[in-house]
Design a binder for these strands. Structure first.
Lengths: 232, 232
DNA sequence: CCAAAATTATAATGTTTTTTGAAAAAAATA
DNA sequence: TATTTTTTTCAAAAAACATTATAATTTTGG
């Protein structure tokens, strides 16, 4: 995430300055706060993409802020990197319910800081991790995750159902013969009854169609086969 | 980093000699300076791999040098170990000079010195570093420390379990086939039964899931493989 | 409207895949 | 080397899924 907005919270002005300088050199936009209250106000107003938080702060301390962020919908997904002074504090940080995405122990080198910021942003940037999605009508298929959503709701499909639906939904409107479907979903060496396809089509209809008596999407083309219809 | 070039800066000739002797015995190349100006000149000319810096120096003092180094691109990544006389100075170093990578209080033993030099060089050696935390569901994996926390409590995992969990938790939601897992955890040359994966999955479930009969996180995707599920 | 053809429904049966328990083998450690 | 830990193998049991036979329904052309 190039040019991300980063909030740095520390009560030592020198640390804030140093972190700010290094992050800005690396191409990030930096805003700063020196205590917990100021930080919370800024988070609400500025919606930073990442927060670097000293664990020891006057007033509300870093871990409390971290925990507080997790309870609000708008702030829950903002990644946090904690600054810890002593090695002993790490276990505490890791051991408690860890809202933070990473930690850095002081003293640390600017290079390490920038590297970790980059890593956390890369990891949490959802847009960058594009996945292959097949969309047709009310159906969205996430191939990587092997998940199917119908009208935005996740539904379970058996392996054969999944493959069959994938094939149909990949080419909306195109008619597939039972033979073609058997060859491509079941395999060329399949020796079973062609009626098998019908049964699976029925299962798909039960999971996809609002009224499986009168299918809107998975249409029968009499004498030919089946197709996934896209509505006009 | 064998044979690294180390710059030692101190105004006391005895200390410089002591440090120089021990580091050279340990196989490092050592150059020296006795004040801030000389140090800065040498850094520019010699590009040392590490700087050992007395915090109290005539003229420009150690902390100022340290800070100055952080503001120049060419010197930003050179690790610095600070020498402090009084224990009271440590907090100052930790709090302010995050540019430093470590510190040693005088008086120090030669062994400690060499150990810390080695540690800092190892830590800052580019290839070896920059790991991150892997988080998924109730699991936090600290790769550097080879530790796993489940619901904030540290749990032990065997090597295979650790690698398998790491891979699954690194890509929450994504389904991995048994073959893929075998290739990436066991290695491409592994010739064992694919059921081996199942057994290890079982062990992971026993350590992660509250009820391993009904796993919430490590899900089976029938006919495909396994995935680490992120809950909504 | 009727009969033939095609499709769909249901349920029982058969198959594959996964889980599980236990023990053998291998590897690591003392 | 002895002991412990870890990994792997194997096979039975369970669970999930696929297939088939049969019956019911729908469609279509005459």
């Amino acid at each position: 995430m190039a040019g991300a907005k980063i909030l740095v919270v520390d009560d030592e002005p020198f640390i804030v300055e140093l972190v700010k300088f290094n992050l800005e050199s690396a191409g990030y936009e930096v805003i700063t706060a020196s205590d917990g209250h100021e930080a919370l106000k800024l988070i609400e107003k500025e919606h930073p993409d990442l927060i670097i938080l000293d664990i020891m702060l006057p007033g509300i301390d870093g871990m409390e802020i971290c925990r507080a962020l997790r309870f609000k919908r708008e702030t829950r997904d903002i990644p946090v990197i904690l600054l810890t002074a002593k090695t002993g504090e790490i276990d505490k940080v890791l051991g408690l319910e860890m809202g933070a995405d990473d930690y850095i122990t002081k003293p640390f080198s600017p290079r390490e800081l920038v590297a970790r910021v980059r890593a956390v942003l890369r990891r949490t940037d959802k847009k960058a991790r594009s996945e292959e999605l097949i969309k047709a009508g009310p159906v969205v298929i996430d191939v990587d995750r092997h998940e199917v959503f119908v009208d935005g709701k996740k539904k379970d499909f058996t392996p054969k159902e999944f493959e069959l639906l994938k094939l149909l939904a990949s080419n909306p409107g195109k008619v597939f013969s039972r033979e073609y479907l058997l060859e491509n979903v079941w395999g060329y060496d399949y020796l079973g009854d062609t009626r098998t396809v019908d049964v699976h089509i029925r299962h798909l209809r039960q999971k996809i169609e609002k009224n499986s008596e009168d299918p809107k999407y998975i249409k029968t083309v009499r004498g030919v086969g089946y197709k996934f219809n896209e509505l006009e």
